[in-house]
Design a protein around this nucleic acid. Structure first.
Length: 311
DNA sequence: AAGACGAAAGTGGTTGA
DNA sequence: TCAACAACTTTCGTCTT
């Protein structure tokens, strides 16, 4: 029973983001990165299990791996030393009273040094802000990490100075979402962050250009699932919507058009065909486009794709 | 009364000289 | 830097259910 599955490092050879095979594993730093697009794949990598088979509990302890996984969301990547408040020394012995004062002073200075200079402090508070915003929007950890990496790169390249930190944070998050193929619209990010949409857009374009993020334009398919959920539409509508998009793609009706508008139109058609219609208004609300746009798109698609919209 | 429709004018971003 | 341009929005009167 023991040990068989102790070591379970999942082998990945391909980046789920860009399908590149340039995956770099840095065992010293505990990072797996796609060299092409910079996606962090830490979830696949960090193995908290014991080092090797253990035959008794003493061995299990001595071979256990130590510490929490690294992450990019703490300003020091979660690797800092922390002096515990137990008055015990490295061997677990209680520290004699006459040395207590000394230990307290060490702790105090250690804490002060850890977050010492201004840039560290700023980074720490920026990453807190990032986390707050991300949880507001209900975004998964992987996106927060990816966004944090983008923000860090921005700092390293001196791209932040002179810009509003919150705006850059929002832009990093927007970029992170797109990088993870779970795009939010600029409008959604702007609402959650309570920052002007245009400014976030500007900061995003700047980051994207300077860091060479090379993000492809978002595709309508990526919005269908989320919009359908918000509209309380089932899998059948989603599937039908994706089908409509691919037909529209084949007919060349999608190039140059806004992806959210296309997704909205596809959902409008799909919902009718599947017998659970939604009003243009309802769809326009969740998709962040106007009814007029939905109309224009869906007319085009329905006509040229020869769709019979009667359910 | 709600939803859909479409014309017309306005907006912000991109492109190319 | 400017104008042309396409996509999209806003607004509004009309038609349909």
């Amino acid at each position: 029973m023991q040990g068989e599955s102790a070591v379970q490092i999942q082998k990945i050879t391909e980046c789920p983001e860009c399908s590149s095979e340039h995956i770099s594993r840095d065992y010293d730093r505990g990072e797996v990165l796609c060299e092409k697009c910079g996606l962090v794949l830490d979830d696949y990598f960090i193995d908290e299990g014991p080092e090797w088979r253990a035959f008794d509990s003493a061995q299990r302890d001595s071979r256990a791996r130590t510490g929490a996984p690294m992450n990019y969301m703490t300003h020091d990547k979660g690797l800092s030393t922390h002096i515990s408040w137990n008055n015990r020394d490295a061997y677990g012995r209680t520290i004699p009273n006459k040395n207590r004062g000394q230990v307290y002073r060490v702790r105090k200075w250690h804490r002060r040094i850890r977050i010492s200079n201004a840039s560290e402090r700023n980074l720490a508070s920026a990453l807190r802000e990032l986390d707050r915003l991300a949880s507001n929007m209900g975004l998964p950890r992987s996106i927060r990490e990816t966004s944090a990496v983008i923000y860090r790169q921005g700092i390293e390249r001196n791209l932040i100075r002179g810009r509003n930190i919150e705006t850059v944070i929002a832009a990093s998050l927007y970029a992170g979402c797109r990088k993870c193929d779970l795009p939010r619209t600029l409008t959604e990010v702007a609402q959650a962050a309570e920052i002007d949409e245009k400014q976030i857009g500007r900061a995003y374009r700047f980051l994207s250009r300077e860091l060479g993020l090379k993000l492809m334009p978002t595709r309508p398919e990526e919005y269908i699932n989320r919009f359908c959920n918000k509209l309380d539409l089932g899998r059948n509508v989603e599937a039908r919507g994706e089908d409509i998009i691919s037909k529209a793609n084949a007919l060349g009706l999608t190039s140059g058009k806004g992806p959210t508008g296309l997704a909205a139109a596809a959902i409008y058609i799909a919902a009718i065909m599947e017998g659970s219609p939604r009003t243009q208004k309802a769809i326009s609300d969740v998709a962040g486009v106007t009814e007029v746009t939905i109309r224009n798109r869906y007319k085009e698609i329905a006509e040229k794709a020869g769709l019979n919209m009667v359910p």
